[in-house]
Amino acid sequence: MANYMSFYVDNLCCVRGNTVILSNVSFEMAAGDCLILRGPNGIGKSTLLNTLAGLTPEDTGTCTINKGDIAYSGHLDAIKFQLTVAENLQFWAGVYGTDKVASVMQDFGLTELADRPAGNLSAGQKRRVGLARLLVSNRNIWLMDEPTTSLDAEHTALLTKMIDEHCQSGGIAVLSTHIDLDIQNARTLDLSQFKPDQSQSNDIFLEGSF
């Protein structure tokens, strides 16, 4: 199995603002792995994904993820309402230097929406365009922040199948979700165990001042 694809996270501390959200997060990912992040609201699922994506600098710890392998999908769909669905995906294909737009639109049932301005789509359809971007980007490590939001049952199944296929072909997926997804070989990581000790304040000078 190709070794360059795997990565590990060791003792990672994630911060948002000045608050430590997660401490001592450690896990390993090999090619073909899928990791599902679970935990209540505000536990730090998005913060961990942002840290993995390099959007938020890590506080302490190591993360050996190769930034050139990442395709990131956040809460927002990163689509332009003034452009059509096809134009949106073509733009991302141009950014990532790929030419998979037509086949991806076919897979995601977006072909009949191709010429619709993205602003006219429903929330679920927008989400599908946002997720289609992951396939267009042709990257190995998918970081997905609650990808099932606004998706109907049919397309949640389609998403599950898509992640399955991605992992079976040697890709890696890390996602956060609140519903149970039927992904083969998926591991679940409950983030509650990494919650830092609340009595420790990050800034000793501000301690007790509020």
């Binding site: 990163a78 950014v95 971007r133």
Partner: peptide
């Protein structure tokens, strides 16, 4: 506002 900047930051550019 629409998240494009975050994705661009993880893109090859």
């Amino acid at each position: 506002e629409d998240g494009t900047l975050n994705v661009l930051a993880t893109s090859p550019i």
